[in-house]
Nucleic acid binder design. Sequence first.
DNA 1: TTTCCTACTGCAATTAAGTTGCATTAAACA
DNA 2: TGTTTAATGCAACTTAATTGCAGTAGGAAA
Lengths: 127, 127
Amino acid sequence: MSIIRKTKTVKLLLKEFNKSNEAISVIELIDKFNKKMDKTTVYRILDRLEDSRILHSFVDQDGLKRYAKGASNTDFNNEPEIHPHFLCEDCGTSSCLPVTIQIPDIPNYTIKSAEHLLIGRCKDCVS
Amino acid sequence: MSIIRKTKTVKLLLKEFNKSNEAISVIELIDKFNKKMDKTTVYRILDRLEDSRILHSFVDQDGLKRYAKGASNTDFNNEPEIHPHFLCEDCGTSSCLPVTIQIPDIPNYTIKSAEHLLIGRCKDCVS
DNA sequence: TTTCCTACTGCAATTAAGTTGCATTAAACA
DNA sequence: TGTTTAATGCAACTTAATTGCAGTAGGAAA
């Protein structure tokens, strides 16, 4: 686990993630901060923040990497848990869902981690 | 849904998928058939086979597209179902798992589809 | 406060997955 | 067997992500 310096760029990214619980794609972040920092810096900071378990990541249906607050195997109360990620096909926003998905026992397989991606309409887009 | 001609290249790919129930990455296929067909052809055939619901696809943890036999929302008996995909971190093989994952009701969200990726050790790699 | 170490950054170049345009080829049906 | 047009190969391109390296700036220690 690498040491994290509180540089200007790190602070900017952390501020962005603290705005909401949304899962933000790297591309969005690069675009949003293109005046403030290089894309390489964005990639590297996200890497470090994930190493430090401040953020967690997953790959969405489009193959894009997305990051959100918190460790991947922990819920909002820091209890061990695997939570699903939601992607709204209408507005494109993504977020961590505060529910637990039950994985059935599969004989002869050992499951170490899981990634659940749910696609549909979010609360703002359901009409 | 486009018409599918039984060309040599289509037959080669279909034969590969009929060997097993494994989910094969596009990259593996391009590599395996690099003497037999162009990578563009591989991409386009897979596209067509998915359109025709002969194959289904998903994106794995590495952001790589993988294809496997059958339609995505159908089980091995053609019953509607959402099945998880498994990826062995030891041997790298991937497959569709014949189990159903229950998605809990999430208030205010409409879930249209889901992708479940389980990572661990397959039956051949569990020691 | 100043010094010093090294984590961090920016830039340019590169890799790798996937896409597009277009001229040519070959299924498949009359 | 000829005709239509789906399918292919090739080259060029796009886009996400990575790497190397010289220069910069956190922050601990003096």
